[in-house]
Each structure stands twice: as structure tokens, then as C-alpha cells.
């Protein structure tokens, strides 16, 4: 039955340490962390507190958000160091006595305050060959839920880019020119696994998308707010397909003689 949301430690004042700043010419995050005291209400998420700060303390505090229901993936930020959706991070699950740190996604160039420039992701998506069916007569198409399930898991992605932010290949090593990042690995996986797609993207996955740069440390999966098993269900199966094509001599031989 119902759980009553406890008022005991939600009607309290919390300190929010919010990053405020502007980028330098390289998009580096230059700014300071500002403390705001916010009176909390039961059931609040971090985004509620940010809105309270806008309405009561800092009307020009920049934050990107749309739906406040964990469906659009706009309000990604780093809360107490962990890349998260602000609309989904409950405050009554956090320690009452410690400040709550809210910073923009570190991997992307800063625009202002909590807003970062994620346009690189949109450029990457353009490079990927879209869905390519063998015939365009949809009325003849038949495929089954068992096949759709695998694809649909990846299509749950709300493009919050938290996986891209968390991925150390981008976050620490800035391999933006060599590696597409987890979000586009599952975009590729979704196209490759589609039962009716006939395009071959394996060479592209290896050479352009740079799947070899992923060292499967799984932070993308750990942080995905949609609980997509990015690494186990997306990247590793793609790595195995790349092995089939480019590394495994036996499979390569079998493929050559048509037994693969």
C-alpha cells in the first residue's frame, strides 16, 4: 500500500553549493560555487530546489530543463559528484547535514552556470547511417516482439548524455574525435540488431565510432537513468561482432566459406 512520505527530515533547510560561471574561450568551466540556503518541501527533487533559487534568489541562474518528469533528458548535471538527472534526484534520500553540490556536466564545454554545450552529440549522430530496410513495403514486414525487445531497450534512451559525461574516454581523455561514446554505441547497436536493417556498419563501428576505445568500465551503465544495460547488452555484443569480422580467424574463415 501507500508509503507516507516522511515530513520529519524533508521540512528542513539545506545548503546548496551551486556552480555559477561562464566559459573561457576553450569552453572550460570558469566560475565559483555559490551557497544558497533552501527550505525544502517533502518529495522535492534537486530541480525543485534549483527552481526555488531562481524564483527567490537568483533569477538569472541558468539551468536547462523541459519536462521535470524524467522523460526528456534535459536537466543532466553532477549532483554530489555523480552525473544525474536533477528531476529524478530526491532530496529526502540525501544526508540532511551536508551541503548538496550541483555542478554542470564536466565533459562538455560550459555555456553558463549549469548549462553545457552538448551539440557535439548531435554532430556525431549525423555520421551514423540511419535505418536501412531491404524493402520499403511496410505492409509486408513481419518481425516479432522477441526481436523488438532488444532494439527497444536502446530506444528508451532519452539522450540526457549522462553516459557521455561519465565515460572517462570523453571525460578525462577528450577523445571526441576518435570515440562516439556510449549513447551512440547503443544507437549503432539498435540499428545493427534491428531484424530488418540490412546496412553493414561493423567497419564503421570499429574505425569511425572507435569501439576499441571503450574499456568496458561500465560507468555509462551505472549512471543511466533509464537503466539501459548499455555495456552488457549494447557495447559488448557489438565488440563481439567486431571480433567476428576483424579478429577471430576461425569465424573469419567460416564467413568466407559461407558457414558463419
Amino acid at each position: 500500500m501507500m508509503m507516507i512520505v516522511s515530513d520529519a527530515h524533508t521540512n528542513r533547510v539545506a545548503n546548496f553549493h551551486v556552480f555559477r560561471g561562464n566559459p573561457d574561450e576553450n569552453g572550460e568551466h570558469i566560475g565559483e560555487v555559490v551557497n544558497y540556503e533552501v527550505p525544502l518541501k517533502p518529495g522535492w527533487v534537486v530541480l525543485d530546489a534549483i527552481h526555488w533559487i531562481q524564483a527567490n534568489k537568483q533569477p538569472d541562474l541558468a539551468v536547462r530543463w523541459n519536462c521535470k518528469a524524467a522523460k526528456c533528458g534535459s536537466c543532466s548535471a553532477e549532483i554530489n559528484g555523480l552525473p544525474s538527472l536533477m528531476c529524478k534526484t530526491r532530496l529526502d534520500h540525501m544526508p540532511a547535514d551536508k551541503p548538496i553540490i550541483v555542478k554542470p556536466m564536466k565533459t562538455f564545454p560550459l555555456i553558463k552556470d549549469l548549462v553545457t554545450d552538448v551539440s557535439w552529440n548531435y554532430e556525431v549522430n549525423k555520421k551514423i547511417q540511419p535505418f536501412t530496410p531491404a524493402n520499403s513495403n511496410v505492409d509486408t514486414w513481419r518481425y516479432f516482439q522477441q526481436d523488438a525487445d532488444r532494439v527497444q531497450e536502446f530506444r528508451k534512451c532519452i539522450e540526457c548524455f549522462i553516459c557521455q559525461d561519465t565515460c572517462h574516454v570523453l571525460r578525462h581523455h577528450s577523445k571526441f574525435d576518435k570515440f562516439f561514446g556510449p549513447r551512440f554505441m547503443i544507437r549503432l547497436a539498435q540499428l545493427e540488431f534491428h531484424p530488418l536493417d540490412v546496412a553493414d556498419r561493423l567497419k564503421f563501428i570499429k574505425e569511425e565510432a572507435g569501439i576499441g576505445f571503450c574499456n568496458i568500465t561500465k560507468c555509462c551503465t551505472d549512471r543511466c537513468p533509464e537503466q539501459i544495460r548499455i555495456t552488457d547488452n549494447g557495447i559488448i555484443p557489438l565488440k563481439e561482432r567486431v571480433v567476428d569480422r576483424f579478429y577471430d580467424p576461425i569465424t573469419m574463415l567460416l564467413n568466407k566459406i559461407g558457414l558463419g
Binding site: 553549493h17 556552480f19 573561457d24 572550460e28 568551466h29 570558469i30 566560475g31 565559483e32 560555487v33 555559490v34 551557497n35 544558497y36 534568489k57 555542478k103 564536466k106 571525460r171 578525462h172 577528450s174
Partner: peptide
């Protein structure tokens, strides 16, 4: 409101 620090957030610290 108090400013706690005013340093750039570097990628690798």
C-alpha cells in the same frame, strides 16, 4: 550567499 571558491574546473585535477 557566499562564494566558496573561484577557480576553474579543470578536466584532470
Amino acid at each position: 550567499m557566499a562564494e566558496l571558491n573561484a577557480a576553474p574546473v579543470l578536466k584532470t585535477q
